[in-house]
Simulated assay, not measured.
Amino acid sequence: MQRRRADDLLGRLSADQVAPGHLDRAGAVSMAVLLLVAGHETTANQIALSVAFLLRNPQHAETFRRADGPPATAVDELLRLLTITHTGRRRVATADVPIGGVTIRAGDGVIAAADIANRDPDRFPGPDDTDLDRTPNHHLAFGHGEHLCLGHHLARLELDVALAALFRRLPALRLAAPEAELPFRHTHPIYGVDHLAVAWSAVG
């Protein structure tokens, strides 16, 4: 029986790369696992953190209950404030690099901390304030340049749809545990919460 090619990412990967021998099976499996972890773990934790943040700040939650939806800038502000890649990228300079009035010498160690950069007052006026209409908002939650996350458009869409649907359908949603008891993942490479206890009541 001839198998029909699946018209999805992994199906195309198998047909276009594995079948012709450009990529072996182990490489394809490794890529599939990477896509699952990078595409699920990050988004799941960003959604949970965003829900916790909005429940602690109900004036901002109202933005996601609007009939016409939140502004396109809202999700990016949450991404900036709640940067889940919080451990920094450790790198070694291979050449002298002048940046911000300082020269990083070849061989120097560098930690590129996106969470700190996302609160740089020179780039973001009132960096600790929440401005869901902030523009421009050139945060580094998805990286930058050739290292920009390939799923950033999908991630934004998932966050926008999930948060709007949740807060519209459950307007009485609330945290079921004090904030101090939330199990934040401070030592995990992906910041978030292990679980988020919520409760709600019927309205209307």
Results as ranks from 00 to 15, higher is better:
T94F: 11
F64C: 13
H139G: 07
D122R: 09
V102N: 06
D76S: 12
A44R: 10
A72T: 13
Y191V: 04
D131L: 08
P20T: 00
A26D: 13
R169F: 02
A141N: 09
R156E: 11
T187P: 00
A162M: 07
D131M: 05
R12F: 03
T43L: 00
L35N: 04
T85Y: 03
T94R: 15
P58S: 07
A6D: 09
A72Y: 08
E62Y: 00
A32Q: 02
A95R: 15
R168M: 04
A72R: 15
G88M: 08
A197I: 00
A202K: 01
P127C: 05
E179A: 14
L170E: 03
D16T: 01
L9V: 12
C149I: 12
R4I: 12
G27S: 10
G88L: 13
H86I: 04
I116R: 02
A19D: 07
V29A: 11
V161G: 08
A48K: 08
D122H: 09
A164V: 11
D120F: 05
G204K: 09
T187F: 00
P20F: 00
M1I: 08
T103M: 05
E77D: 11
T63W: 12
H152G: 02
R123G: 11
A155N: 04
P70T: 10
L132W: 06
A180M: 07
I47Y: 06
D76I: 06
G145P: 14
F124S: 10
R174L: 03
E179H: 11
R25T: 12
R90E: 14
V37P: 02
T130K: 06
D131W: 06
T85P: 01
A172S: 10
V161K: 05
D133G: 10
A28F: 04
R90N: 13
V198L: 12
S30T: 09
G100D: 13
D128G: 14
A6W: 01
F167K: 07
R5Q: 09
H188R: 04
T130N: 08
T103H: 02
H138Y: 07
